[in-house]
Amino acid sequence: MKIVKYTAIRMILAVVFLFTMNQLYLNTFWKDDINKHADTLENLWVVPLESDAIYFGESSNFHIQEGDSIKHRISYALDSLLPSISIATVDNAGLHAGTYLSLVKNIPKEMNLKFVVITVNYRSFSANWRYAPFENYLAKSALMLEPSLPILNKYMISLKQYDYQSDEERNVQMKLAWKNEKFAIPNFDYDNVIEWDSAMAWHTWLEVNPNLTEENIPLASHYIKNFAFNLDTVNNERIEDLNAIVSIANNKDYKVIFNLLGENFEEAERLVGSELIYLMEKNRSLLVSYYADKGVIMVDNFYQIPDSCFVDRNWPTEHYNYQGKKIVAENIKKAIIENELHN
């Protein structure tokens, strides 16, 4: 009996302590910690509560081409195109569905949103991104933003209760995925990323593909590593994140728009070949139909951005000049208007 009383008193005290400490933490160190570990949330804090929609994006939203006369974000262009809807922006470099999910969980309850626009980056489903070193930071951010007591989130970060892995561990996983994921492309000799990339790296393709040179082989290799994969709607972490976003949006009664970014398919085909386009198309159509079936408004920019709009020429990115950003904004606008008309 004595031990029960002893434990009960301490348990009650612990709960009182915990809530008091949490308040103290919120009023002292929390903002600094958010700034350090999950700075994207700061963008969400400044979103006006009366906004109708939030555009969640990564660097594609704000990256500019040197010489662009208009330097607006995609989200800003969209806001201008739809004057009747106020669209707020939450963005940061390198984000993917995992971070958007944490942010969506943190949308203030007082907001009466009609839409959330989620940027979907095709590359974020690839092993190259899923096992990138930057994942540690994103996983840490996600934990920091969990809807639990912030002081406990902070301590869980100290205990590394997020998907922390060393760069070496992630590299091993990435290479395993490249090796184990079989493509089964008809009439094609290479069955996985490693084989495909090795063939390219050993320059055997220089003779086959007139578009390849010693200089652009590394870029071709990046295209294979980033674009060649089989989208797995059961096990891919990003699919799980997107599904969770859909589920939250359904519960909170706002529409979700998945803004599938355009990829430089022209360059991909020129440097690597139609086999890569075959895989990309297979994944794209699966992704679009998978989420359309779930009632998500899919904005499919995949083939919409011409090569001339892509800014980076040494790495496959979704950084567009203003013309490219405007195409994306126009497509989202169309989707929103169509949806409004339907309703």
Binding site: M21, Y25, F29, D33, H37, I151, K154, Y155, I157, S158
Partner: peptide, 9 residues
Amino acid sequence: FLLLSRSAT
């Protein structure tokens, strides 16, 4: 309080 809030990350 220090343990929960100020432990190194």
